[in-house]
Design a protein around this nucleic acid. Structure first.
Lengths: 248, 248
DNA sequence: ACTATCCAAGTGGTCTTACCAAGGTATATT
DNA sequence: AATATACCTTGGTAAGACCACTTGGATAGT
């Protein structure tokens, strides 16, 4: 295993690029812990020193960190690089939320499109589970759980798109969005009709991806975020109204 | 010797920094050959695996190179120091190029769409200037200038979209893309027909934005990147062909 | 005497084994 | 029940052996 080396003749290099690949593809997510060196070397079919050399390489690249006696972990530097500039930008300027939603609309509709094209059987299975969880949790009144599952659902779609950049971008944006989703769900909480619409939208996206209908999936995702946008403006208007009422 | 480790608990790190120091100080000049791993490890008073880990680290940093059966040498060009983490990741994983272009296609078509909707008079003026410069510089054979203006043109479109995220994202991607644009233009340089197509595509985007035709602008941008994608696959295939010819 | 071939020493690359040191956990002791 | 101890797992280091490749000198053929 792993012995096929394209141009390099150093197996530690092969291991390093393999690990890089797994990190980029997302099978090794930031924060994940690698198997122990002994187990992992056995699993890869290489010796422990070779594995170590590869790990050290990636540590110098900043992709991994290791704690003596603890384990070796994937750094979250990749996401940090993309998000950091925006994080403070957004927190300081709430008016950027519309920009964010616009961007999200583009990103998620494209993700849905590609997911419908490329989703594998395991992707479908994962989405099925996520949708089931989503449907379930909407019955309860646990807003926190709703957010978590909602985010996981959209992230699942992005992963099914099989595009590294889309995957990482979605992760980044979701971290930013977290707060918005809270506002949005809060606002919808006592509006059963719209709550029901939301479920229908998620269902439409899910079905379109399942049936491998790219155009339909993209359209469904588009109108879903469109719905969220309208709702969010409602919500913020309500909030402003309350504020001005207080000032009066 | 060397056992005193300031903050790090990893002796391979200590060795690596020590070697770096020697290289920077000049006691190890570019082109110099290191002692054999066995001798050197004995001389430093460390084990060979530790020395090797340190050497591998410096190899990934680009400071050393090793030839199987030959020896380990100090690299003669020390420019490899400042590398964008994403940059070398991309160069190491060609499969990401397709992902990147796919993402760029989505991003730029959306940017063109929004730009056509929202471009102000000053945006238009700036785009006019950029397009004029682009048209001008294509006459010359200055590839470097072509890249710069090309990037500036696309960045101008992104700015005209008046979405902070799209703007920032375009800046980030353009930094990554720089290399690709070079390959692409290089490849097109002696193909006048395609060169002409490229001009026509830029012109189409520019016109559509000028005339505030969002759909047309998006379509033009889409087909433009599509053209680039096809071209780039051609270019990489050519490059591979040359390589395999050399190996024969 | 010259050339071409071959072989052996030296070098990086890999593997195995063993031991040390730092976390973490479960258990026993108080 | 709270604390402390022993133990197990994990990363870090070391030593020795073997393999694969490079190199250069010795040898054999011309």
């Amino acid at each position: 295993m792993l012995q096929s080396r394209p141009t390099v003749t150093r197996i530690s290099d092969a291991i390093a690029t393999e690990l890089e690949k797994r990190i980029l593809e997302g099978s090794l997510k930031p924060g994940d812990r690698l198997p122990s060196e002994r187990d992992f070397s056995a699993e890869l079919g290489v010796s422990r020193p070779s594995l170590r050399e590869a790990i050290q390489k990636l540590i110098t690249k900043g992709l991994l960190t290791s704690r003596h006696g603890g384990g070796t972990f994937v750094t979250d530097r990749l996401d940090a690089h993309f998000v950091d500039p925006w994080q403070d930008l957004l927190s300081g300027h709430p008016m950027l939320h519309t920009d964010l939603l616009e961007f999200r609309q583009m990103l998620e509709s494209q993700a849905a499109y590609l997911a419908a094209e490329r989703a594998t059987d395991v992707d479908i299975q994962r989405l099925d589970a996520l949708y089931a969880a989503l449907d379930m949790v909407y019955e309860s009144n646990d807003v926190v759980a709703c957010i978590a599952v909602d985010v996981a659902f959209h992230q699942g779609i992005a992963d099914a798109a099989h595009n590294v950049l889309i995957g990482h971008m979605t992760v980044s944006l979701m971290k930013l969005i977290h707060g918005h989703v809270a506002i949005n769900l809060e606002h919808l909480h006592d509006r059963p009709l719209r709550w029901e619409q939301l479920r229908a939208q998620h269902r439409a996206i899910w079905q379109a991806i399942r049936n491998h209908q790219p155009e339909a999936a993209a359209a469904a995702a588009l109108s879903h975020i469109e719905f969220v946008r309208e709702n969010l403006t409602d919500a913020t208007r309500d909030a402003e109204r309350r504020l001005s009422a207080l000032r009066r």
